[in-house]
Amino acid sequence: MRALTVRPGEKGSLEVRDVPDPVPAAGELLVQGLAVGVCGTDKEIVQGEYGWAPAEREWLVLGHESLGRVRQAPPGSDFTAGDLVAGVVRRPDPEPCGACARGEFDMCRNGRYTERGIKSIDGFGAQTWCVEADYAVKLAPHLERAGVLLEPTSVVAKAWEQVERVGARSWFEPRRVLVTGAGPIGLLAALLGAQRGLEVHVLDRVTEGTKPALVRDLGATYHAGDVEQVITGVCPDVVIEATGANEVVLTSLTGTAPYGVVCLTGVSPTGRRTTVDGGAINREIVLQNDAVVGSVNANLRHYHQAADALAQADLSSLERMITRRVPLERAMEAFSPQQDDVKVVIEL
């Protein structure tokens, strides 16, 4: 079969190659791959900046945003042939920390976790793949064209869970949320905010094209103005920050209503220095009882929350988030950005 592979640490090593057909172990599903999404982590791996190959070889099958159809399921599992599924990315470390031992492997404290398509385990970028039944999530049948959004939606589901848990330290009934960034994470964060009945605002740089229209279709208000003016005008109870841009992050920290929660999901580049008034930031957060929390990855319950959210969402809006589909044999094209890209997927 054909698979998308890379040699981690080696820039320019991305290739589509023949690899052996997988044989499911006990308790594993055999899955026909349908699609994998491309995100910033994949691009870092392709650039040689990140990633680990399995211990026994130099190359890694890429792809952690998965979608497939079950061809064979183990007896006694909750799956049958024909089910639409996605695979969970992270696995607990072999000598689990306290979090991993309790199923909270997204919160691993010793860093010895592994991840499909990223760290030490082959990903889902292959025409056929296997996954343990305990790490597979079933999707609604109508999501065949949009179910590849499950993994990024799981990241957003966790972010919302973190916001709600932090807010629950006292009375908390948020009304307005500002999502910064209208990429896949930002749009999906807006979707989950709208599903919660909140007044949703989305801030991005572009003034026309796909993103503003998608935001409106999600029932949210789109903004493309000055960051400080937008945040001041909205005065959100919650900020889901999905850009990682220094100015946006720093402005978000002091821009919420009192007792606000800022959830940082965007990963900032290093080496870019900004002069800030740290005392003013600290004063605002302390005197307003504000909270700031970072959130990344997801565990099994977040995948199930994400599957429920996608099943309830407007299908046409989900499908329009996928702005480009590239066949496996031309996978390199998926890593060259084009104007109006939101989510690019590789069809297997």
Rank of each mutant, 00 (worst) to 15 (best):
A3F: 11
R7F: 01
R7Y: 00
G9D: 04
E10P: 02
K11E: 14
D18A: 12
V19I: 13
V19C: 06
D21A: 15
V23L: 11
V31M: 11
G33K: 09
G33T: 06
G37Y: 02
C39Y: 00
G40Y: 02
D42S: 10
K43W: 04
Q47R: 15
E49G: 05
G51L: 01
E58R: 14
E58L: 05
W59Y: 05
W59I: 02
V61G: 03
L62Q: 08
G76T: 11
T80L: 12
G82S: 15
V85D: 05
R90C: 00
P92Y: 04
P96C: 08
A101W: 08
G103Q: 05
C108H: 05
Y113I: 06
E115M: 11
G117F: 09
I118E: 02
I118A: 04
K119W: 02
I121A: 01
I121L: 10
G125S: 11
V131N: 01
D134E: 15
A136V: 07
V137G: 07
R145S: 13
A146G: 12
L149E: 06
L150D: 02
L150Y: 07
E151L: 02
E151T: 07
S154H: 03
K158P: 01
A159R: 00
A159T: 06
E161P: 03
V163M: 09
G167R: 13
F172G: 00
L178N: 07
G183V: 08
L188C: 13
A189G: 14
L191Y: 05
Q195I: 09
G197M: 05
E199H: 11
H201W: 08
L203M: 13
R205Y: 13
T207E: 14
A220D: 10
T221A: 14
D226K: 12
E228A: 15
E228Q: 13
V230G: 09
V230M: 09
I231C: 05
V239N: 06
V249W: 04
V249A: 02
V249K: 03
T251E: 04
S252Y: 06
T256G: 11
A257G: 04
Y259R: 12
V261P: 05
V262D: 01
C263R: 00
S268I: 02
R272I: 02
T275E: 14
T275Q: 14
G279L: 10
A280E: 09
N282D: 03
R283M: 07
I285K: 01
I285E: 01
V293K: 03
N297E: 05
Y303A: 01
Y303Q: 00
D308R: 12
A309L: 09
A313D: 04
S316Q: 10
S317K: 02
L318G: 09
I322E: 11
T323F: 14
F335W: 10
S336M: 10
Q339S: 15
K343R: 14
I346K: 09
E347V: 15
